[in-house]
Design a binder for these strands. Structure first.
Lengths: 210, 210
DNA sequence: GTAGTCTTGCTTACGATGTAAGCATCGTCA
DNA sequence: TGACGATGCTTACATCGTAAGCAAGACTAC
């Protein structure tokens, strides 16, 4: 099932991410993860204190991906790099929808994340923003991105199969009572997540930069 | 432990909401919920098909609370009632932080929610908005509110104890490397969730109404 | 009233989960 | 060589969701 050859926190986390991507978060158990690595469940505990810590590790992992592609150059106007943060975060979360509920739920206190926040705050203050406002902007962008992406990734934790939830109810909706919802389904108006996200982020950034 | 006297889906759901509020979502098990109601675990299955359905019921319950206090009068400009929806939703979610991760994760397809959406869409179109744009606004407000509230309610699913996560790391932060984060902690600048939420919602609504 | 059906809650049982405790097998270094 | 720390395995336990079937009352039809 797997390369075997020496566990490590890294390998355990990678395998867990693999497994969650493939089978969904609810399917992840220490035993199955062990099997996936060709190893017994209890062996994992040599490299991870418990399952919760493992899940935290997954979130940190995904966040690293989000930060990885970010430009380190924070000079110049803050709006462009804040926007690119939003889009990178969304991309990273969508790449691993299984961890999304975790990312939404758990604090992100990885050194990377703290360092990133610190640098952003510094850069935004240098650009003339008060500290409190800078933090508000960072948090609003981050929380909106998470909220939006939760909706976008389909909600059922197992793994989403179809389009947004509405479709399932399409034929159960009484045309007389729900004309607009039905029109949404047939025309797909307002179901473009790309557009919705981009526009909302721009509105927020524009609102904060005035 | 409880009134006994005849179960029902209503009573089961109410008790579950109670239990989650009191002990946190992870502590909720069918056995413990049964005990809380003075009944055996398997008895609950007469009124709820399985645990997942019970959790869905909890989400619907909380959403009902959010809708309950909303004005039914959707005539006139849409910005005020959309804003009041945002604030009602936040209040309802904060009132039951234990269900928040569920609300963020599960589709909301209760009849109430569908009816509400339909009416909003109708009212916004009557006010001249295109259908797609109306749906975007509803979804952006809803997803931002959920994202923000997830962060606000403290993340650890068990039950948050202290202030936002940063505090725990206050003394572990090197003052030379993290001057801005430390200043946030000491001055509490940018940690006013009320203000942050209100401002962001207003920015979004203003942005969409131009 | 009596017999039959429905409803509700209980009992028992099974497989899966997270993880504590201790054992076995190493490679490394004195 | 012999001790030792690191790693993985074995066994065991409490807890979980829930399938299957039983028991006792409530209600209906005659």
């Amino acid at each position: 099932m797997a390369p075997k050859a020496g566990l490590s926190r890294e390998r355990v986390l990678d395998a867990a991410l693999d497994y969650v991507d493939a089978h969904g978060l609810p399917a992840l158990s220490m035993r199955k993860l062990g099997a996936h690595l060709g190893v017994e469940a209890m062996s994992l505990y040599r490299h991870v204190p418990n399952k919760d810590a493992l899940l935290d590790g997954l979130v940190d992992r995904v966040m690293e991906h989000a930060f990885a592609e970010l430009s380190a150059d924070l000079s110049g106007p803050w709006v462009p790099w804040m926007r690119s943060f939003a889009h990178s975060l969304r991309a990273a979360l969508l790449a691993h929808p299984g961890v999304l509920p975790l990312a939404a739920t758990r604090p992100v206190n990885s050194p990377d994340a703290l360092r990133m926040s610190e640098q952003w705050l510094a850069a935004m203050r240098a650009a003339g923003l008060p500290l409190g406002r800078a933090l508000d902007i960072i948090n609003v962008i981050a929380t909106f991105t998470i909220g939006h992406t939760l909706a976008e990734a389909g909600r059922t934790p197992g793994h989403e199969d179809s389009d947004p939830d509405l479709d399932q109810h399409a034929d159960a909706l009484d045309p007389a009572e729900f004309p607009n919802l039905l029109e949404v389904i047939t025309t797909r108006a307002g179901l473009d997540f790309d557009h919705r996200f981009t526009e909302a982020v721009d509105i927020l950034l524009a609102g904060y930069s005035t």
